[in-house]
Amino acid sequence: MKRAQRPIAFTLNGKRVSLRVHPMTRLLDVLREECGLTGTKEGCGEGECGACTVLVDGQAVNSCLVPVAQVAGAKVVTIEGLKGRHPLQRAFAEHGGAQCGICTPGMIMAAAALGPRPTLGQVRTGLAGNICRCTGYEGIYRAIKKAESRSKKPEARRQETAPTIAPSKARTPNPESRIPKAGTQRAR
């Protein structure tokens, strides 16, 4: 099995990462398990729900259907790459775009791929590959609309989304810290 592994390098949220993995490992598994970026979710493993949506060279893809070997040399951006500061993120949090939250990262990535000021028609078509079972999508449309009105000029927005955080193994989190702190959910 070790023999089947090979080195693969790509850019993840603005940082170069290099790993040894089986080339057919799903990008989703590499992101979540090798890189410790668990914001990308698995809802179905068959490319239907869109919860695992990430951007590869700017295009929205289902990371559950991408063998990691195929992103060698590519630029991958996950929800973590938006650093919590993308106008869509704030709008989803504040305007009913997120309920249970499991579809939210993928939904935001698919929405981010639409570019600035999409029409409702473009939003509905562009998010048709992201299933939400909580909102009936109305809250998501409202959030995207709010994000538009709040977002800066396209250039500024691109800059803001330019990822600079360190991903990856170097920071594989302390397992204990990945569990909610005993007892409390801090008010935010």
Binding site: L37, E80, Q89, F92, A98, G101, T104
Partner: peptide, 13 residues
């Protein structure tokens, strides 16, 4: 929402 920011950022576990 109390849980909004964690969910929209991908931090929610």
């Amino acid at each position: 929402r109390k849980d909004g920011a964690a969910k929209a950022s991908g931090r929610a576990r």
